[in-house]
Design a protein around this nucleic acid. Sequence first.
RNA 1: GGGGGGAUGUCCGAGUGGUUAAAGGAGACGGGCUGUAAACCCGUUGGCUCUGCCUACGCAGGUUCGAAUCCUGCUCCCCCCA
Length: 398
Amino acid sequence: MTPALRTPAEQAAWLARNAVDSLPAGGLERKLAEAERERRPLRVKLGIDPTAPDIHLGFTVVLGKLREFQDLGHTVVLIVGDYTARVGDPSGRSATRPVLSGEQIDANAASFQAQALKVLDAERLEVRRNGEWLDMPMEELFRLVRTTTVARILERDDFAKRYAAHAPISILELLYPLLQGYDSVAVRADVELGGTDQKFNLLLGRDVQTAYGLPEQAILTMPILPGVDGERKMSKSYGNYVGVTEPPEQIYGKTLRLPDAALGEWYALLLGEPLADGANPREAKRALARALVARFHDAGAAATAEQAFDRVHVEHRPPAEMPAVALAANGDGLVHLPALLADAFGVSRSEARRSLEQGGVKLDGEALAAEPLDRPLELLDGRVLQLGKRRFARLTRV
RNA sequence: GGGGGGAUGUCCGAGUGGUUAAAGGAGACGGGCUGUAAACCCGUUGGCUCUGCCUACGCAGGUUCGAAUCCUGCUCCCCCCA
């Protein structure tokens, strides 16, 4: 898939083709030339946060770029931020992230690594934990902290905004860019990747390296992938993400829900190719969905997922497989519908009542009247209960 | 150290003693229309044993027939002065 790229200049251009920034100008090319001259692989660094163990599509954009480096013979250094996670990141408007336990971090890191291998080549991969070097004496910390100033840190866009908005910023947060920069020192990074939101941190890493007498890393920033809402960046906290370990039908279905306006971006960032001019959005989106399922599962799963999708949403038939829910009747042989719906779909009983009132509950495809709330068990046994358009369950007598 | 401002439902944000489960918006959910796209229209959006009951406006007490609204203490945040 990688075209034959002979010279460092060609390689640099290829690597930067869908990046936002490649800094400093010519930096990547010089690194590549140096590696060739010294016959060593470049050390390409990416830091990850083990607070969330799931990798979503947005993150695979950066992973995909790392893979390109690997395909050119370079080494990827994945840094698990175990130490920083343990300290806790108080950033963000939505309160403090929980401080994770050691076991939790280990578990997350392991699952993260397994997922990353769906994109990365295990042969040219080095995984490190920043706890290896960040647990430093205060004297060392002072040395690190001296490399920058408050004004410089406050230049970072989100700090600047929050400061202007009188939102809280903890000292600890201000320290994070420096710690991340020190990671680059510790692993002697030649190149560091990140999303565009990481630009400041990546650049600061160069200053930190200089202060420690090391050559500065080149940086490459990748565009941020919009989430399935097509609006905000893909993020777990916005609930607009597609996880790489999700089942085929989920990946397929979520992809088809993507607004057309974002289709071009997904093509460019996930498939690495432009969306053909005048392409039928529906067909293009189906092709994209198949490609993504095939990438994280396999081609067979992609075909199956598409069939399952068509069956439910095009042909309006219940899915071939659906969870079974046990019916529990009271003494009169009646089943309380709100309780049944709550049990089957994890909604509250009040919510279930509302859905009933709005005609959102179907039995074998027929809308169920809101009254009465208690139905004979015989009427329900063996039938398909449906909430909304895409939640199904088969009812069975215990 | 001193002074001032603030904490409301998933989020943002009104509300300063009584039709307030709490305006408005976003999001989400259900229905319509569709390509399960977007846009658009309608409805819903704390819980429950549901014509009622319970729980809710940072936390804990108090005043009152009645408090998100008043008082006291506490926690956290922001600003100004030093």
